[in-house]
Amino acid sequence: MGEVIVITSGKGGVGKTTTTANIGTGLALLGKNVAIVDADIGLRNLDVVMGLENRIVYDLVDVAEGNCRLKQALIRDKRYPTLHLLPAAQTRDKNAVSPEQMKVLCEELKQEFDFVLIDCPAGIEQGFKNAVAGADRAIVVTTPEVSAVRDADRIIGLLYAEGLTAPKLIVNRIRQHMVKKGDMMNIDDIVDILAIDLIGIVPDDEYIVVSTNRGEPAVASADSQAGKAYQNIVQRLMGAEVPFLNLDEPQNFWGRMKKIFAR
């Protein structure tokens, strides 16, 4: 029996979908049976981020309404044979599915898969309630901005109310040079404010744009900083203790050179 993890944030555009795609792919790379579920009905995105947009036949609403069997709607990723996507419906709205239907769906997915990741829509309305209904655990994604942290705080409160009392935090898009200058909140600041356990720090990495363009999650790439960060998150999700990335370490050739000469 697997477990259902919802990935949520409150605010839009902080990287929920990218996080879901990368954690899902990372778990599959380690041989886990994974289903990623796009719960953002009406604004389907996880399929394009995963590069699976051309293979959709049925979607989540079809399964909930009984138009097809779950197996028919799940798209198996040919690159990672243990990874499966359940896409959102694009032409329906959030009320097309109820929290009860999501619970049933999650129960069914848990029988088949080690991990079921739910990509939650932004906001705190019906879509959020659907996405968290069947979840056993929650991951909250935020960025080092006042708006995102505030919304994360609100979401943490709502998760508590839903019985998800130990959400884990991912701080996305950290820009270390700004943190150093004192122009961006650092990890300690954010953890201090939100008061939940940290499970990952993801640096702002241009490679994410490239990988999303291509539909190939960064976690599979050996030389992406963000990809490395996602690999670490996957390890921590599976219970391993992995130190957080040292973002001060210069990563490119010139950075390393500078460091050598600075000694």
């Binding site: 901005e145 006042v146 004192g182 122009d183 909140m185 600041d189 404010i193």
Partner: peptide, 8 residues
């Protein structure tokens, strides 16, 4: 003047 202190 550090803007992160303002943000916090």
């Amino acid at each position: 003047a550090s803007s992160k202190e303002v943000a916090k």
